[in-house]
């Protein structure tokens, strides 16, 4: 049994914290950890919570998990906040809204910064989720950045996507319409004690009717997370969606697609690294790159040339 494997046997938060730290920082050790966790993938239900800023996602996650945790299930939460593009630093504040979860031994929270990723998640989110899954978490909740742009990344990782909205965010609804609006599995109108809640529910229901998923009518729920209202209903719908996925084979399909996506990502990443290190080593190519930069050589020709050389080098074709 190798070292990484033994870590997975131990099941301690301290070790899990250390494993995740390696993965988050993409250290040399992280490959071994990911390889091991890939083999150990468990059966966690992965739920993505997304929505515009100010919709109260963190508070909702807090109250949702507080209720869920009572049943004793093992919960992992991954909360993502943006990295500053200028300083590369980040202020990760979701935990302040999840204080009620601290001290619960069956809840593990990991905050991540986007570190330059644009799709609403951190680059290592899928890896982090995989390790949590392999570590025996039964439910993993991913809270996306929620800065207003369309956050598609979560769709690739999550089994169930919950879109959180608030009354009176008409404009953001418009932007969302174009994208994730069509793909979420459960819609929530949070802060439903505000004026306009019923209108928002009505609008959403109309939209859902136009975009019905096959065999799954996306429910539209009202919640007031701050008062703990609507949590039981939301939990029921999340559970109902899980059962739907399991019974309709989507559960397995999603996992298979995810495996392929992962393979693709890894291949592209490896290729990028390979190309990078190859061109950095070749002085002749550096000169040609300079020519492209100055407009003396066209990029198409050089690109084809580099790829050809690279394949030759590896003895292919």
């Amino acid at each position: 049994m190798n070292e990484a494997s033994s870590y997975f046997e131990k099941k301690s938060d301290v070790i899990l914290g250390k494993l995740l730290k390696e993965v988050e920082n993409q250290t040399a050790n992280s490959i071994e950890i990911l390889r091991e966790s890939s083999a150990r993938k468990g059966t966690a239900h992965i739920v993505g919570i997304t929505g515009p800023p100010g919709s109260g996602k963190s508070t909702l996650v807090n109250k949702l998990c507080k209720t869920l945790a009572k049943s004793g299930i093992e919960i992992g939460i991954v909360a993502v906040d943006p990295t500053s593009p200028f300083t590369k630093g980040a202020l990760l504040g979701d935990r302040t809204r999840m204080q009620e979860l601290s001290g619960l031994s069956n809840v593990f929270i990991k905050s991540l910064a986007t570190r330059g990723n644009l799709g609403g998640l951190a680059p290592t989110t899928a890896d982090i989720v995989q390790v949590l899954d392999a570590y025996g978490k039964e439910l993993i909740i991913i809270e996306t950045v929620g800065v207003g742009q369309i956050e598609f990344d979560v769709l690739e990782i999550a089994d169930t996507v919950v879109l959180v909205n608030v009354p009176g965010l008409g404009d953001s609804l418009q932007t969302l319409k174009a994208g994730i609006m069509e793909i979420a599995d459960i819609y929530v109108v949070n802060q439903a004690d505000r004026p306009g809640a019923d209108e928002s529910v009505r609008d959403l229901k109309m939209m859902v009717r136009e975009k019905l998923q096959e065999n799954w009518e996306q429910p539209v729920l009202k919640t007031i997370a701050t008062n703990n209202e609507g949590m039981i209903e939301l939990i029921d719908q999340i559970q109902r969606h899980k059962e739907f996925l399991l019974h309709s084979n989507r559960w397995d399909e999603k996992r298979k697609t995810r495996n392929l996506t992962r393979l693709n990502h890894l291949m592209i990443q490896s290729l990028n690294n390979e190309v990078d290190s190859y061109i950095r080593r070749k002085q002749g190519i550096q000169i040609k790159i300079q020519q492209v930069k100055e407009g003396k050589l066209d990029p198409y020709t050089l690109s084809d040339h580099i790829v050809e050389q690279l394949i030759k080098k590896h003895g292919g074709m």
Binding site: G89, A90, L92
Partner: peptide
């Protein structure tokens, strides 16, 4: 954060 660190505020 401005100094480039990731700060988890509790």
């Amino acid at each position: 954060r401005d100094e480039g660190m990731e700060v988890v505020y509790l």
